[in-house]
Design a protein around this nucleic acid. Structure first.
Lengths: 204, 204
DNA sequence: ATATGAAGTAACTAATTAGTTACTTATGAA
DNA sequence: TTCATAAGTAACTAATTAGTTACTTCATAT
């Protein structure tokens, strides 16, 4: 690997950590440079300014989920509808559990009214997954295991919010419920619960 | 009202707006002072420093939900279990829809690992509502309309996350789903969907 | 070997920010 | 009226921050 590539990568790794932890306003360019063991000058040389660096990090993080989604879509082409839906839920649980930075970056972005995502023209970023869920629900209806009334859009919204919110709210919720939501046990319970709710809804 | 009380109130109103919009790091003390039409000196005289002001705002905002919860608990003492659960869902929908600052402050707090809430010893802040839901589910089981397997903790988590996440993720989700989740129509649909899911779960 | 452009360094600037200080004005009880 | 205290002001400080500049070192193709 060229040395400059290595430097860029170190900057991106450090920046992801810093931005995920502290957000755009809280993040310090000097801190990123120090963590990356890179001179601040290089950071500006490669990424222009703080905002461009932030956008790059956000898109990278977002893209890593897209890759996982596409891989599941490819693998589950011939899986039956009910299992496929459960696998999607499982994918999000696993991904969000292992990618705290993703959860946090998306929260910052929501607080920023999705401005960076908007300006990055990523409108179609989730299209593959949405189409896939729609297709699987359609298959389930034809097989006769899903209700004809089931709405793909409802299920997609539910999937995304029910799983994401568990992770994004784990700190305040753990406090309020006096339970550690990050524990494997609680996580498994919630996963099953969400699966049951959604499959129940689909089967009516 | 004493003039100082009026000044304090103006500071709190301006601070809530500023902190909700920009978070602790992004918020500017000078901006708060200007919006409140108050000299910065007074802000420090009354609230000590930026962090103390932030905590005060957070607790105020949090407390406004508690008041709404307590009022519903009082009113629905004798309401049947199923309606009572639906009313709780409705309460959260209405409250969050009308209190964007609450949603945002809680998101900032989650990103801050709930540190302010922790230090503020608000562990019992949701106890009334949790106990109430537990009681209503218990009543439902006795009446025979709810399944004996239904878990109050599951329902409470679901209530809090399913409704909150709709609002906290509305910006990125609207983009991804290419729908305006803030519209009254989408809101009603999601409310009904959440009600159905939860009541279905309770009735098994 | 060496010339050239890319990679890297350290010290700087200009702007912004939380928090302070020394001072003035209003209020209300004796 | 007067005097003590509470409320308010404007200008300041010290620290921090994003971004820049003028310079040096390194790698490599010829």
């Amino acid at each position: 690997m060229k040395k400059s590539e290595d430097t860029k990568k170190r900057i991106l790794v450090a920046a992801e950590e810093e931005f995920a932890q502290k957000g755009f306003y809280g993040a310090r360019v000097d801190e990123i440079a120090e963590c990356a063991e890179v001179n601040k000058r290089m950071l500006y040389a490669y990424f222009g300014n703080k905002e461009e660096l932030y956008k790059t990090v956000l898109l990278n993080v977002y893209n890593s989920l897209s890759l996982a989604e596409d891989s599941l879509i490819e693998n589950d082409k011939n899986t039956d509808a009910a299992t496929a839906v459960q696998n999607v839920i499982g994918l999000y649980f696993d991904f969000l559990k292992n990618n705290d930075n993703f959860v946090r970056m998306l929260m910052w972005e929501n607080l920023n009214n999705a401005n960076c995502l908007k300006s990055a023209k990523t409108q179609n970023i989730k299209k593959n997954m949405i189409d896939y869920i729609e297709k699987k629900i359609c298959e389930g209806k034809i097989e006769g295991i899903f209700s004809q009334n089931a709405s793909a859009q409802r299920v997609t919204t539910a999937l995304l919010t029910f799983v994401f919110s568990y992770f994004s709210n784990k700190h305040t919720l753990s406090l309020v419920l006096d339970k550690n939501l990050a524990s494997q046990e609680e996580l498994n319970t919630h996963r099953e619960f969400v699966c049951d709710l959604i499959i129940n809804y689909l089967k009516n």
